[in-house]
């Protein structure tokens, strides 16, 4: 009996230690998985079952998609989902555009102003401006109450540029020489040599950017006054948290009754779903991509 990853010199594992370790791992996994189970189950449960159980269901006996129907038939949530998808798509595209171009533009040592520009980018890792000056800048530029305020101010991160740039610098020099021999200019080299070879790292950085845009709730809170423009995270905050964490609002006469538990949980499930969809790709590439960019010395 030998485990595949276990060196011979370690000897045989002790059963007690093995059992304890397995128990620890199961417990840790359960602590992470359990809340998701409750959310999905509650979102699919019927009203009677939720009421009978006091607000949540761990394992529904009867599946009902009413909550999801209500969400997609209602205007505000459905609209906020469209807004979130749009902001995420445009934001990720814009961020990637800036990041990849800058990464290639800064990859050539000895090119004009390269050191100065690189320092200009890297210094932003050490300090950032406070919230108020950035807010006033966004206001000054007339971007308040526009979707650009969610996209442009945080679009460029020096960290992402460093990761992509590091990858580009790992491309063999001969490929650049050959392309230049054939008369290719910088744009041509970027398009035909660098981009095809950097697909993996661009995909990873893009996914991380997309997750960031999707999850962002503070920028819209700060920059968008019009609730009609709110993305999913903010709408979810209003529906799920503010009716719950500060529950006294529900006691006010004339207050619109908060959505049922299952609708709230369906909202959480919908907000989580895109993350779960891209998660396999993230886990596949992140240890490789992120570690080589960030840790390997």
């Amino acid at each position: 009996m030998s485990h595949p990853g276990r060196p011979v010199w370690l000897g045989k594992p002790k059963p007690v230690a093995l059992a304890l370790k397995a128990l620890a791992l199961v417990l840790i996994s359960a602590v992470v998985i359990f809340p998701f189970l409750v959310v999905v189950s509650t979102s699919l449960a019927t009203k009677q079952e939720i009421d009978a159980n006091g607000g949540y269901v761990v394992w529904p006996t009867q599946i009902s998609f009413d909550a999801y129907h209500q969400i997609f038939n209602g205007t505000q949530v459905a609209r906020s989902i469209v807004i979130s998808v749009g902001v995420t798509a445009v934001g990720t595209a814009f961020s990637l555009f800036c990041t990849v171009l800058a990464a290639y533009g800064l990859s050539r040592r000895g090119s004009l102003f390269q050191r100065g520009l690189l320092s200009f980018v890297l210094l932003t890792l050490l300090f950032g401006p406070g919230m108020i000056p950035v807010y006033l800048m966004v206001k000054q530029l007339g971007m308040l109450n526009t979707y650009w305020s969610l996209i442009i101010p945080g679009a460029v991160s020096a960290f992402n540029i460093v990761i992509v740039r590091g990858f580009i610098q790992g491309i063999p020099k001969e490929l650049f020489d050959a392309a230049r021999m054939d008369g290719a200019g910088e744009w041509r080299i970027l398009w035909s040599v660098v981009l095809p070879l950097s697909k993996a790292v661009i995909a990873v950085v893009g996914l991380f950017l997309a997750v960031g845009y999707w999850n962002n709730y503070f920028s819209p809170l700060l920059y968008l006054n019009d609730t009609q423009m709110w993305p999913l995270q903010l709408v979810m905050r209003t529906f799920v948290l503010q009716n719950n964490v500060t529950s006294n609002a529900a006691a006010i006469p004339g207050y619109v009754a908060p959505p049922a538990q299952s609708v709230q949980m369906a909202l959480v499930a919908i907000a989580t779903l895109p993350i779960l969809l891209v998660y396999p790709f993230l886990t596949k590439h992140m240890s490789k991509g992120m570690l080589t960019g960030a840790i390997k010395g």
Binding site: C98, T99, A102, G105, L112, F113, L117, E186
Partner: peptide, 8 residues
């Protein structure tokens, strides 16, 4: 190259 760095 400078033009590429410009947006960021």
């Amino acid at each position: 190259l400078l033009l590429m760095v410009a947006p960021a």
